[in-house]
């Protein structure tokens, strides 16, 4: 049952990523990426992390994708690549070859690593509950947690400064 669900959602994730790469319209790319994020959220749920499932849906599929779609439509940058000819046409086959090489290396490394047995659902009972995550965030990982707050503040200030009108950057 798990395997069937994994194959279906994994296929959806791969199709979404591939269609994002191929489609010529940036809005379509964004929507295919949304499909991919949704599939990955389901995979998180299959891996017993309900908290990350909700975070993935609200932050990635919600906030980040809205930001992407908003900026694409604001700039009217849907079809940038159709306007001008590709000046680096030779880079495409090279990129394909390098990508395949990367995939091959990653696959070989992954397959060569001896894999321990995955704990079954009885052993993993209660694993990944949001309460565990929250406890860890506010004890062992308190400092990194505070630092993320600073990073978000810096991001907010940076966005405001970058988009001030009437200032030459």
């Amino acid at each position: 049952m798990d395997l069937i669900l994994f194959i279906i959602t994994g296929a959806i994730a791969l199709i979404g990523a591939g269609a994002m790469l191929i489609s010529r319209n940036a809005v379509h790319s964004a929507l295919f990426l949304l499909m991919n994020f949704g599939a990955i959220a389901v995979l998180f749920l299959l891996l017993q992390s309900p908290f990350l499932f909700t975070i993935q849906l609200t932050v990635y599929a919600g906030a980040i994708m809205v930001l992407f779609l908003f900026v694409v439509m604001l700039l009217g940058a849907e079809q940038v690549e159709n306007a001008t000819p590709d000046r680096l046409a030779w880079s495409r086959p090279l990129a394909m070859a390098l990508g395949l090489a990367l995939l091959a290396v990653a696959g070989v490394v992954a397959l060569r690593t001896p894999s321990a047995a995955v704990p079954d659902s009885a052993q993993a009972l209660g694993f990944g509950e949001p309460s565990q995550l929250g406890k860890l965030l506010f004890t062992d990982y308190l400092l990194p947690f505070e630092i993320t707050g600073v990073i978000l503040l810096v991001a907010v200030i940076g966005v405001v400064v970058l988009n001030q009108r009437g200032r030459k950057l």
Binding site: F68, E81, R92, L98
Partner: peptide, 22 residues
Amino acid sequence: LLSAALFTMGVLGVLIRRNAMV
């Protein structure tokens, strides 16, 4: 392996596509 495949697709997107959004 699925993660490796998705990562490779992301690398290809960065290398091939010219639209900064994509």
